[in-house]
Design a binder for these strands. Structure first.
Lengths: 160, 160
DNA sequence: ATATAGTTGACTGATTTACTGGGTTAAGGA
DNA sequence: TCCTTAACCCAGTAAATCAGTCAACTATAT
C-alpha cells in the first residue's frame, strides 16, 4: 500500500464522479475541467479503475463514466490499489524470501503496518467523504466556477 | 505523509538500531550487512535522521549511531517524515489555494486522510514493534546469519 | 454519416530511488 | 604523531515512477 499523489488524483476523480454521475454519465473532460487534472492522465487512471470494476463506461455521445456500485460500497483503499501498481512494498510479494530466501525484518513489520493502513482506508467509503461539509462546499463552488467553462466549451465546439 | 519504500528502509534501519545499539553504538556497515541495504544509501538516510534528532552519533573507532531517546518515544511517523522530504501532498502547503487561489476538493479530503494516517503511525512506537514476536524471531535469525559475516569482515580488514 | 467519447499505445521530461565512488573530518589507540 | 575507524559530504548515475502529450483507434447515439 503506497500513498502518493497518483492515488490522490484517483480519489479526487472518483469523488467528483460520485458528486456528478448520479443521473447521467460524466465525461473525463468534465472532471479534467473541474479538478484541473490533465485529460490524458485521467484516461490512464480510469483505464485502471475500469479494469478494477470501480466504474462503468457509456461510450458515444452523452456517454462517460459512472460508479459501478453505490457510493457506500466503494472505499478509498480500493481506489488507491486500483491505480497504484501494487509492486508490493516488500519485494517478495508475500513470498517471505526477501533476504537470502528468508523473511527480512521489514517483511513482517511493513506487512503489518501496511495491512493496518489498508484496513483503515478500507473503512472509509466515498459515501463517508460525501457527507463531509467542507467537501460539499468545495464541490458546489467548483461547479459554479467551472460550469460556464464547460458550457462555453460545448458552445464553441458546436459552432466549429 | 507519503508512504514509500524509502520510509520503509528508514524504519527498518531504526528498528535494527533499536535492537543492537542499547549498549554500544552500531555502525552503518553493520546495519547494511544485516538488513542488506547499501551503506551509502544508509548514510543519506541517517544524515536526515540525525538532523531530525532521531539518532545521536559517535565518531571514530568504536563509534556509530544510537537512538537519541528511549524506544517508546520514537514513533514511526517521525521516522518517515524525517527521510521523506515533505513536498507536501497538496501542492499548496496548507495555503488552501491549490486551484485558482481556492481550495481544491483534494485539499480537505487528502489533508484529513493523511492527518489520520499520520496520527495512526504516530501512535506506533519502536517499542511497540520490538515487542512483536515475529520481529524478534527475524532479528535473532539475522544476527546469527550475519554475525559471522560481520566477524569475517573485521578479521579480513585486520589482516590487510 | 458524423460527432462524441472512451481505448490503447508509444513516447516524453521531470523527479525520485537506490546506489557507487570519491574525498574529508573527528576521535581513539599504538 | 601517525594510523585506523567511522561518520560526513558531494557528485554522479541507472532505473523507476510520475505526470503528461500525442496520435490512431473503436463503439455508439443522432
Amino acid at each position: 500500500m503506497r500513498l502518493t499523489t497518483k492515488g490522490r488524483y484517483a480519489v479526487t476523480a472518483m469523488l467528483d464522479l460520485a458528486f456528478h454521475s448520479e443521473r447521467t454519465p460524466v465525461t473525463l473532460m468534465d472532471i479534467a475541467t473541474r479538478q484541473t487534472i490533465s485529460l490524458s492522465y485521467l484516461e490512464q487512471l480510469f483505464s485502471r479503475l475500469r479494469r478494477a470494476e470501480m466504474v462503468v463506461v457509456v461510450r458515444g455521445p452523452g456517454g462517460g463514466y459512472q460508479l459501478s456500485r453505490p457510493v457506500a460500497e466503494i472505499n478509498i483503499s480500493d481506489i488507491i490499489k486500483a491505480v497504484d501498481e501494487q509492486i508490493d512494498s516488500t519485494q517478495c510479494g508475500g513470498e517471505t524470501n526477501c533476504q537470502n530466501q528468508k523473511a527480512c525484518l521489514t517483511h513482517d513489520l511493513w506487512m503489518g503496518l501496511s495491512n493496518q493502513i489498508h484496513h483503515y482506508l478500507a473503512s472509509i467509503s466515498l459515501a463517508d467523504l460525501l457527507e463531509r461539509k467542507p467537501i460539499q462546499e468545495v464541490a458546489s463552488r467548483q461547479e459554479q466556477d467551472v460550469e460556464h467553462l464547460i458550457e462555453l466549451r460545448r458552445e464553441v465546439i458546436v459552432r466549429l
